[in-house]
Amino acid sequence: MKNILISGVSRGLGLEITKSLLKKENICVYGFSRAKTKEFEFLKEKNPEKLKWMSYDMSNISDIRNKIFKEFIGLKTPLHGFVNNAAISYDDIITNLNYEPLLKMYKINVFGPMMITKHVIRQFLLHNVKGSIVHVSSISAHTGYKGLAMYASSKGALEAFSKNSAREWGERGIRSNSLVAGFMETDMSSTLSVDQKNRIFKRTSMKVPTTKRSVSETIIFLLSESAESITGQNIHVDSGTI
């Protein structure tokens, strides 16, 4: 049985990844999110053994070890993968930047995931597991968009953290990659106007949104042993943004 930890599990991409993972055999998903959606509840009822959930707000950094690793997963349970999917967006032009929302976004997008990664790697070591970590990043860290500087900077930080995690722990067989997602039709991008979205899609080769399916299937591949030689990479799934 392979145990995979996923943040932001109840909707959007997190829900999509969970659905795809549950179709596989011998996978148990440990997911957390602030709240449950109806759709997630339904999925959980259908998979009581393979899907575990806890309510956790990632801006609460001090309880990560106790709540997630000791109580929820349990130190005796080997962990094989971590998908850092949960994130919030703080969109504005830089001249309007405020510290409080910036700090909140960094706690959820960067500091929380870094602390969770610490304990994920420790759990890998405790059980001698060559685990795989996938951070969900964004094309905005590579191609500039007006109003996304703060959000993009948090994803850039994650990508650097991922690359260095790969280098530091590679000799133990532990892998870390960033999945650089293009703009998807999720709640995350729901605040953008149709006009803004169209301008974004025009900058891709395919002129269409990136699908959640393509992103989640690539993440599942990166988690699997088929991706055993892939680490420290930024894998772009972005409708060919060039």
Partner: peptide, 13 residues
């Protein structure tokens, strides 16, 4: 240093 990290984790458990 990586071995010490593993030792720490085992002692902590």
């Amino acid at each position: 240093s990586l071995d010490l990290a593993e030792l720490t984790v085992r002692i902590e458990a």
